[in-house]
């Protein structure tokens, strides 16, 4: 498979400063294949970046589980009354 980028560029090892800019795309599996290979080669050699990646993975996972505070009871009551008026069974 041919790429328009010069071959040499893709062989360059990744440094930490570049690594942190790719973490989000890597976790979302949107990193192009050649970038991904460089990225994974770097993880194997760098504890700092491996830790950064792992933290980011856990952080993103925990954001989804972050419970919201309960809705304001007054607002809830108003909405429920409106629902009853609009859709309620007689």
């Amino acid at each position: 498979m041919r790429f328009w980028r010069p071959h040499r560029r893709r062989r360059d090892p990744l440094v930490c400063r570049e690594f942190v800019e790719l973490v989000s795309d890597y976790l979302d599996a949107t990193l192009p294949r050649h970038e991904r290979a460089r990225f994974e080669a770097h993880i194997a050699e760098c504890d700092g970046c491996a830790g950064y990646l792992e933290d980011m993975r856990r952080l993103i996972g925990s954001l989804h589980d972050l419970p919201d505070p309960p809705s304001d009871p007054t607002t809830r009551a108003v909405l429920l009354r409106a629902f009853r008026d609009l859709r309620g069974q007689p």
Binding site: V15, C16, R17, E18, C46, D47, G48, C49, G51, Y52, E54, D55, M56, R58, L59, G61, S62, D65, L66
Partner: peptide, 18 residues
Amino acid sequence: FDADGHWLSVPPRLEADP
């Protein structure tokens, strides 16, 4: 990062899992 783009010291880990 240092001039070569490597961590100066290993970044602190997070307690990212609530």
